[in-house]
């Protein structure tokens, strides 16, 4: 019963969706201000989801009907579960378990797999182009991020979220060391790719592919996808806060705003990259930087 409350209300579905949609608004507002415009009002995220629930759902003939509707809901459920596991440890509500940071990272990968599934069953050739790009992107940004997680876990000596947070309370946050700064830069780019934002939004390239993978979604199905994206915009910065900052509500809020502002600035100053550029970037530069951070962490800098 208590678990159901954690999953559905706080810090699960309701809490994460509200904060996620407000973060989406913040992103659009800051982007608009950077471009010297006004932006949308604060309730824009909620209005979008409400409007999508009002429209009808069209399932194309060649699509595999039940999978088409089930996949985004599956993604939504797994994102909610990941955020619940993260936040129960962060807010000190209950104890985590060993290895739960790995579980959280791979639960965050499930929406990408749901996206691949939707794209493949859409029955549209433009979607399949988006699918091939998304698969390649998924393989690329996994490597540097796993190296970063392993660095933080090995410094703390344990793979559990609570352990990493407590180690940082004792020994100072990870970001105050040199290896922490390098790892933070690597992690910011990996998070940008995971969220599917410019410069890595190849899979749902709006102008090139007519929205790529999401071409055939409409109505409530699209609402589920947008909601899961908004919740990831809340969950992934929380993940970074746990890895790099540790405990503390005030510091956590400031760090959250800093990460959001960094993500928005990267989005507004860059064009979209090609898939071979992206793969070279993640497997070349970012992996090299992560290995450098590992060496520095080992030396104790």
């Amino acid at each position: 019963m208590k678990l159901l409350f954690y999953y559905l209300v706080f810090p699960g579905f309701l809490f994460a969706s509200v904060i996620g949609l407000l973060t989406v608004w913040l992103d659009r507002k800051v982007s608009a201000r950077v471009q010297w415009r006004y932006g949308p009002p604060w309730y824009q995220g909620f209005a979008d989801i409400g409007k999508l629930l009002y429209k009808e759902v069209i399932i194309p003939e060649e699509a595999f009907g039940s999978g088409f509707i089930a996949a985004p809901l599956f993604g939504l459920a797994s994102v909610t579960l990941a955020i619940t596991i993260l936040c129960v440890s962060f807010f000190g509500i209950s104890e985590g378990f060993i290895g739960d940071i790995i579980v959280v990272w791979y639960l965050f990968a499930i929406p990408a797999i749901a996206l691949i599934y939707i794209g493949s069953t859409s029955g549209n050739p433009l979607s399949s182009v988006g699918v091939s790009r998304e698969i390649k992107l998924l393989l690329s940004y996994d490597l540097p991020m796993v190296i970063v997680i392993v660095i933080m876990a090995s410094k703390a000596g344990t793979f559990s979220i609570k352990g990493i947070m407590e180690w940082q309370m004792v020994n100072g946050s990870n970001i105050s060391n040199w290896y922490g700064i390098i790892a933070f830069v690597v992690a910011i780019f990996c998070v940008q790719a995971k969220l599917g934002r410019v410069p890595f939004d190849l899979a749902e390239a709006e102008t090139e592919l007519g929205s790529g993978i999401l071409l055939e979604l409409s109505g409530g199905v699209l609402a589920a996808y947008e909601l899961s994206k908004a919740m990831m915009l809340f969950g992934l910065p929380m993940f970074l806060i746990i890895l790099f900052w540790g405990k503390g509500i005030v510091g956590g809020v400031l760090m959250y705003l800093l990460i959001i502002v960094l993500l928005v600035l990267i989005k507004n100053t860059n064009p979209r990259v090609r898939i071979d550029h992206a793969m070279r970037f993640f497997w070349g530069w970012m992996s090299g930087a992560a290995v450098l951070a590992a060496i520095l962490a080992h030396l104790g800098v």
Partner: peptide, 15 residues
């Protein structure tokens, strides 16, 4: 700027 009214340009007629 029409984004302040919530209007957005999308790439697919389904959206």
């Amino acid at each position: 700027d029409v984004e302040r009214f919530g209007i957005k340009l999308v790439g697919s007629p389904r959206h």
